[in-house]
Design a protein around this nucleic acid. Sequence first.
DNA 1: CCTTATGTGTAAAATTCTAACACGCTTTTG
DNA 2: CAAAAGCGTGTTAGAATTTTACACATAAGG
Lengths: 252, 252
Amino acid sequence: MKRDRIEEIAELLDKRGRLTLEQLDDYFPHVSQMTLRRDLFQLEQEGRIIRVRGGAMSVKEVQKVSGEPYTKKTAIQTDAKIKIAQKAARLIDENTSLFIDGGTTAMYLAKELPDLNVHVFTNGLAVAIELAQKKNIHLTILGGQVLKDNLSTASPVAKAYFDNTNFELAIISAAAFTPENGFSCASQIEADLLKLTRKKAKAMYMMLDSSKIGKIMPYTFARLEDIDVLITDDNFPADLKDRFTNRNIVVM
Amino acid sequence: MKRDRIEEIAELLDKRGRLTLEQLDDYFPHVSQMTLRRDLFQLEQEGRIIRVRGGAMSVKEVQKVSGEPYTKKTAIQTDAKIKIAQKAARLIDENTSLFIDGGTTAMYLAKELPDLNVHVFTNGLAVAIELAQKKNIHLTILGGQVLKDNLSTASPVAKAYFDNTNFELAIISAAAFTPENGFSCASQIEADLLKLTRKKAKAMYMMLDSSKIGKIMPYTFARLEDIDVLITDDNFPADLKDRFTNRNIVVM
DNA sequence: CCTTATGTGTAAAATTCTAACACGCTTTTG
DNA sequence: CAAAAGCGTGTTAGAATTTTACACATAAGG
């Protein structure tokens, strides 16, 4: 009973990296904060988490020097991204083949993805590390120069990989979106890759948290009508939503 | 002034692991707690420490607490591998281009490698993650299917990358070695990659801890005489050492 | 049936953290 | 050169979190 809850908390923390007590309380509404505190204390004793003011963070998360500095990660729009990732994860069926990009949202998707028998292609180091933990997932990473700021790879040669591979679905995210300029990102080479992805994939799902709306980055890689499903958060403007649904694009 | 103090705090924390604000105040009696708080906040932003109630702890300390992703493999011969990695790291000059493989020893090499202006190619996810932390290192990862057991990539297409790239030096490790069967590893595709590497590189350094000696794995990728430098530990048999030095191979 | 141990909840007390403003000093600007 | 702006710092009150202490319920054991 108690142990179950503690383990569940530990799992949750491993997934999320860091949670506040309030967030924990939302997950476990039937016990008091004090109990959760005691659980956290125990987990700290076991060396599995670190209690920080306001809540706790997973030791594993810290040990993974990787990903990004957890500070950044926890900073912006984390909750929205996790929710989007959860929605996206539910859309993935067994025995499919899909592409996932290398962004932050994609990393959350990788965390949320159940350990199904699917084949995943990605250009994200952080995504790859997450997925490599899951036994049933076949994983292929695209090679190329590693961009330090977002731990994704980019290479003109990536095309060579795509020649021999097929995937039904591409789930990607964009750094910016406006109806006029479409989906854009910061790097030319990444934009090229994503364009290519668009061609190869039968369907394209876009993960876009609402903070990206109205921003413009240098390189557009897809227009509004190029995508099949838009996965976003609750703050997505209703008028914009119509512009997608009018073109038979599912917004969720 | 401010920066100096912050760096001093960071060092102190790396040494002590964890300090309370009061302890910090003892070290820096001439500034107020508020200033120290602000310093800690800054260090947290930089991802170097974690603020906990009462004070802060060093990220490095947390990372030490227990093993990395693959504790099991890392467990065996760790010390020897680290020493070998340290030796290898000292052999790397600035402004060179080199290949590092994806093995466990290579991961330690990645950790030990100073942050020089070098260009590194690797097929190891773990190696890539380590190196991505270092600002001055240009990093390229080879794509391909990710082998879950050792987090390295392998792909027939990797060749395509090599066509456009050059490196002077390859530093690799082997899973097994006998004088008769040479250096071998467990995967065909990895062996192919390493053979290719041998051709591209002007020089080849082999990291081999002595526990690998006498073992044979399915796929040989290099013979005794194919390497230029052998980096090993103190338990390396003297008679075997002669067989290398007789062929002008440096053993260290 | 009583005793003990364990898990939990509640609320007050203690501690720590944050926010806000003020001050002195340096740098920039007109 | 003086005014303005920026930076680093100190002080304080107030906010938030954590700890402590005690109460209660339940289950196990004698």
